[in-house]
């Protein structure tokens, strides 16, 4: 392991982390704009031109608010809860292949932080750990509504993990590998997995909605029944962490869907126009981000179109149709 290799990896980690945060930040703005568009409104337009400084204003507002820690709560766990949620949300980005490798002066620079040979299992493990932050936060608040919200969130996430695991197993059987880098590589040209596994893709995207706790599966924070769900007692930036982690999860889920089923950084027929492998790699990153933005839009589109499920309907959908 040479020093330059280490420095390259550190730079890549910092870039991926920064891009994840920036995309998540602007997803909050995009969500409000998409909601406004679907409801025939204008949306945020005061902070900066077209309101593009709105996420910054929101962030400053979150930081400046008074921080309230309930007296009867378990203080350590109350702080650990939102931190864990954000940590697990940021951990998944390391195995996603953002582009084909760059070759500069004969040295290969892969645009993936690490291509572990158990990439899918790593992803699955981190997703299954995401439950802890919500459960700990909900329980430590010492509030009935928070506890109920946490219970809903965790039971929903556990039950949809099963269906997600089954759809991933179907994918692994067709691709024959657990490494995300190889899965993206195999989908060169038109060999996208979605044409081989349309049902698997459908199940996976439904489970992704459930795992990110977004509408139509946002029962854990159902306002009409549970005040605010598992983050009822949270204020200031701790609440911000919970809300922000949802957008990071959405970004990562979109990246995973694009990599698993929609060819990752591959785009058909691009070799006819561009031959240089380095330009292809850079274009690949652009194509991947185009796919990711499309899926983030789908997430928002569904949220502002479909009503919320009832809780028993949700569990029936998750556990009986298998």
């Amino acid at each position: 392991m040479t020093l330059s290799f280490l420095i390259y990896k550190i730079i890549l980690v910092v870039i991926v982390f920064a891009v994840t945060l920036v995309v998540a930040m602007y997803s909050t703005y995009a969500e409000r704009k998409v909601a406004a568009f679907l409801q025939d409104r204008i949306g945020p337009n005061r902070a900066g031109p077209f309101g593009i400084l709105q996420p910054l204003a929101d962030g400053i507002k979150m930081f400046m608010k008074e921080e309230v820690i309930p007296g009867a709560s378990n203080k350590t766990l109350f702080i650990i809860g939102p931190s864990l949620v954000l940590l697990t949300a940021c951990m998944t980005g390391v195995v996603i292949p953002w582009g084909s490798p760059l070759v500069i002066d004969g040295t290969v620079y892969p645009l993936q932080i690490t291509d572990v040979n158990i990439g899918i299992l790593y992803l699955f493990g981190v997703i299954s750990l995401g439950v802890y932050g919500i459960m700990i936060g909900g329980w430590a608040s010492n509030n009935k509504y928070s506890l109920l919200g946490a219970m809903r969130a965790s039971s929903q996430m556990i039950s949809y993990e099963v269906a997600m695991g089954l759809s991933i197993i179907a994918l692994v059987m067709t691709t024959g590998t657990l490494s995300l880098g190889q899965i993206a590589e195999q989908q060169h040209g038109w060999h996208w997995n979605v044409f081989v596994q349309p049902l698997g893709f459908f199940i996976f995207i439904i489970c992704a909605f459930a795992e990110t706790n977004r509408a139509p599966f946002d029962l854990p924070e159902c306002e009409t029944e549970l005040v605010g769900g598992y983050h009822t007692e949270y204020s200031s930036m701790k609440l911000g962490f919970f809300l922000f982690a949802e957008y990071i999860n959405m970004f990562i889920s979109s990246a995973v869907i694009a990599t698993f089923y929609f060819g990752g950084y591959n785009m058909p027929f691009i070799e006819r126009f561009v031959q240089d492998p380095n330009w292809l790699a850079i274009l690949g990153v652009v194509f991947l981000f185009m796919k990711i933005v499309f899926f983030i839009f789908v997430f928002m589109w569904v949220r502002w179109t479909l009503p919320r499920f009832r809780y028993d309907q949700l569990m029936n959908l998750g556990l009986l149709f298998k």
């Binding site: 299992l121 699955f124 493990g125 299954s128 439950v131 556990i158 993990e161």
Partner: peptide, 10 residues
């Protein structure tokens, strides 16, 4: 990975 998924995750 399986240890984490099965024990810690489930």
């Amino acid at each position: 990975a399986v240890h984490i998924i099965v024990y810690a995750g489930a």
